[in-house]
């Protein structure tokens, strides 16, 4: 029985990194499966250098659909905010309504948190008439209990929409990576903005109108590189954008 070539090796070759050695070439010559995989990866890579930016339909489209189908307005009211698919975590928002039972407890913990003023830095309104887009709000990110580090988050309005400029200091992990999240003040939902380089910081696109929807807590977590896209529950620094 033939042992197939490792898929990751095929992916590497498809990207033009190295190529099959003698035995690899011999295997490819006689194996449809591996030849097909390699060809499909090459084809897909060819298409990946012109990927479209995803576009979210306007919020009222869901209401138009439920109207036309005469579905229960209750359902329509509970409607999904059209997902911002740049964020895998966004999908959880629809599910959150199924967990009303938990909501109170969670809301209480978040209320306690906000009451404690964790992470609410001084806010300043900065106006900048330079070419750089104006900073609307700048907040500090403060360490959570038992954690060390500091940071800033600047909300910027660029032509492409809201952006969050994040800097950090005193973050140094040997393992894993830092991830920027926006957590809803309802304590039920969060979205991931991406990976943060703790030494150089980063600028992140804020999807849609999520600040208005209550995603105002800016949270930096330390994440193990374990393939689990969920928040690790290991938050390091945090701040809250003013309402």
């Amino acid at each position: 029985m033939t042992t197939h070539l490792d898929d990751e090796l095929l992916a590497q070759w498809a990207m033009g990194e190295g190529g099959p050695d003698e035995s690899g070439t011999a295997h490819l010559a006689s194996c449809d499966r591996c030849t097909t995989t390699l060809a499909e990866l090459q084809l897909m890579l060819g298409e990946m250098h012109d990927l479209p930016q995803l576009e979210t339909p306007p919020a009222e489209l869901w209401a138009r659909i439920t109207d036309e189908l005469s579905l229960d307005p209750e359902d329509a009211e509970d409607a999904p905010v059209a997902p911002v698919t740049r964020l895998p975590e966004e999908r959880r928002t629809a599910a959150s309504r199924r967990f009303r039972g938990r909501t109170l407890a969670v809301a209480a913990t978040v209320a306690a948190l906000l009451g404690a003023g964790v992470g609410v830095g001084g806010t300043a309104l900065l106006r900048d008439d330079e070419k750089a887009p104006p900073v609307e709000v700048a907040i500090k990110l403060d360490p959570l209990e038992g954690k060390a580090g500091a940071g800033t988050a600047d909300l910027v309005q660029a032509t492409s929409g809201g952006q969050l400029k994040v800097t950090a200091s005193g973050l140094s992990a040997n393992q894993g990576f830092y991830e920027v999240w926006m957590i809803n003040t309802d304590g039920k939902r969060m979205v991931s903005l991406g990976v943060l380089n703790p030494s150089s910081g980063g600028t992140f696109q804020i999807p849609g109108q999520i600040i208005a929807q209550g995603y105002r807590i800016i949270d930096i977590s330390l994440e193990p590189d374990d393939g689990n896209p969920e928040h690790s529950h290991d938050s390091i620094i945090r701040g809250t954008l003013p309402a």
Partner: peptide
Amino acid sequence: MGFARVCAVTSREADTPT
């Protein structure tokens, strides 16, 4: 564990349908 744990909210519980 304090805040770091509690405020990771319900992302895990609110499992999205596949």
